[in-house]
Design a protein around this nucleic acid. Structure first.
Lengths: 234, 234, 234, 234
DNA sequence: GATGAATGAGAGTTCATTCAT
DNA sequence: CATGAATGAACTCTCATTCAT
């Protein structure tokens, strides 16, 4: 046992090895600075084989993005508990999100940092995945408002803004958590579990949403318009 | 009289022209794809002059990042109203942030998209600036807790997490707003003012924070541990 | 029964299939641009088999050239009517030449365009075949001179020059005729028969040669030394 | 005195040096086998400079072809004696042609052997030049027919065929003469002067044409239809 | 101070060619 | 016999960077 040098491997397997190597290399160096030579070496094969199977650097990058994108979406979708209240759905989805990004930091880095900074073919792919997630969150917020017997209505545009903010917050936390971990190269640093991170997010988000759905609004003078009149004024 | 071709310009001015051109080019093309040729041409000078003043592509990029970084921090700092309650300080800071990023989209793109995706020398610079802002926000959250007579204490780690989430949310909104505007190529699209965007953020954030400081927590079963059942007093 | 996929074909046949494919591919793409992959695919076999039978790209090209060379020479030789006057022999040879090149345009293209433009190994092969034909033509011119009771002798060197000119003229006509045909993509263009083309050549050549053997020469002032009109009898 | 290493040369000069080197290399190796490295080295400069000035291998080849094409056409045009009889014009043009091709064998090789075998962009250029020359010859043949009080008319198509044959013959002679010379690497081999070669061509061509314009035709039985009835031989 | 001329180093890509099955 | 898997070597092209004027 132990892969001695693994020669003469079937194509499907080799392709995955190459994609694994590519994810790591793109994450570490960035798209432009990652050379096909380096990727091939990391995959343990020669450069021509990479081209034979994946055609070009662009195609390779696209394939990587698609694979990581689908894996992330699938992970989140699988994590969401169906048929429960909106907050529980969000919580379970967040747990899935943080767990997946923590387990695949390179993939997440490629999606979050590399793919978005490079021209149309790539950015679009990620944008679509993100849009999917934002749409899901938007739905949840709407559902939450319904469940809470929302007072005063949330404008569609405001909901979209909230969803974007929520997703951005989650992305920021995912990166923060990963970076903290990566830097502690000396092995086991206290890596907050996905559950903890998800809880932080829920605390950050849901309590506020609760108030909003009750009609509360923040204004320069403080919170106003609380359902019960008590809130106005500090 | 009348600057025919702007010759014999003092060094300080020339440098700024180069940096302006560099910001635009880096934002448009990305670090790797931006060639020194293109930057020099955009700046209206010859390439050797760029090297004479800015030494190398790396130095140029670093200088750009530092300049944009400092400009952003300065803009936020200048926007913060001193001596008022924490929420008002946060609000004014956010307004400053959104106003600056909207006014300098290229600079923001370089900081947010380019600098973070390229190796150590650059990412660190941005990370430090971000840390500065996160620290400021962390302080505000702490102050808010104090002001509210915080119940039960917020763990330092939790506060840091909240601050990161908040900053991430703001970044996400900044980009969302800018992109929405850029895409609406059909002329004047309703570009939400910095004030509106800041309000969205405050609604998203502050109401929740308020509950947190009152001891409320979200748990899988819903919100729990509210100070009193309905006693949202200060 | 019925060759479903033509398996288990004897080597000699397979080789011819490969050579056929190679001729077409080399003609279409040129030597350098023709890839072994393309040739193998066109032949309907796997690439290693091509190498097994034909050793290398150079060998393959050489073999192609030799085969086409010999086929052309054989066609011309077979066409020549033996035992008749020199002019009739030339005419029949030309008919054979034009008929063969028209029937095998790819082979002719490889010989005429590809083989001569690539280094020594190949050019020599074609040069030798051409020399064979030139020698035959030279002989015919000599014989014609004899038959006509040549006046004043034709220097050996001059005869060689005439032969080269004649062959070049024939080659030029062969290509002109083929190209004209290929371009007339709009269906049936009047493709001059080999007979017609050979007649054009004979008119071009023989009428002039007749005068030459009679002692006529062109000189800056016009034709001189004509047999009659100015008494150039022997 | 004596070009030591010729550094810092003005662009126009360097470009010509590069083109000179390219002509030699393309002629020696063929388009595909000639590497830009080799061309650059032959020109005494670095590869990037070649690209800076000439953009790409294709552009370089095109430029070479155009330059050599124009030089050849100009040489022939300059050589043609204006205002004299058709045969003298043809003779002087041929002298110019043979003199130029003998003086620039590499250029001629590129035009005659390389350019025609490579795709549309290049072949067209040469085809146009050749068409120009063929047209000129066609005109001369027509004029000659007129001058001679042509009997029986030459069909337009026949004239075109004759012109093509004539040009092909000239090309063949040009190459023959050059090759004979090149191979005698031991210095001064008896290189037939352009004048001699042109004379051979005129003898080959004109004497025969003379008969043609008088109504003579070659037919399987020999020359027929000579102006004077005497021609109908056995 | 400013620039046209020039290059070392390296990237993406392709291809003829060979094993091992 | 026949082929999928794999590669060494080379090629075109680009770019950051530096002299010499």
């Amino acid at each position: 046992m132990g892969a001695v040098k693994s020669k003469r491997v079937p194509r499907a397997v080799r392709e995955q090895q190459m994609l694994d190597a590519a994810v790591l290399t793109f994450a570490r160096r960035g798209y432009a600075a990652a050379s096909m030579d380096e990727i091939a070496e990391a995959a343990g094969v020669s450069k021509p084989l990479v081209y034979l199977y994946l055609n070009s650097k662009e195609d390779l990058f696209s394939t990587v993005i698609r694979r990581e994108s689908e894996a992330l979406v699938a992970a989140v979708a699988a994590a969401v508990e169906p048929g429960v209240t909106a907050d529980r759905q969000l919580w379970s989805g967040l747990k899935g999100f943080f767990a997946h990004t923590a387990a695949h930091p390179a993939g997440w880095a490629v999606l979050h940092q590399q793919a978005r900074t490079h021209g149309e073919p790539f950015a679009r792919e990620v944008a679509m995945m993100r849009a999917e997630i934002v749409a899901f969150v938007t739905e949840l917020i709407g559902a939450a408002a319904k469940e809470a017997g929302c007072v005063g209505e949330l404008a569609e545009r405001e909901v979209a803004g909230l969803a974007h903010a929520l997703v951005g917050a989650a992305e920021s936390l995912a990166e923060w958590v990963n970076v903290r971990t990566d830097e502690g190269a000396s092995g086991e640093r206290e890596h907050p579990s996905a559950k903890d991170t998800a809880s932080t997010m829920m605390n950050f988000v849901w309590a506020g949403l609760g108030r909003l759905t009750e009609g509360g609004r923040w204004a320069p003078g403080g919170l106003v318009g609380q359902q019960s009149a008590s809130g106005a004024r500090r």
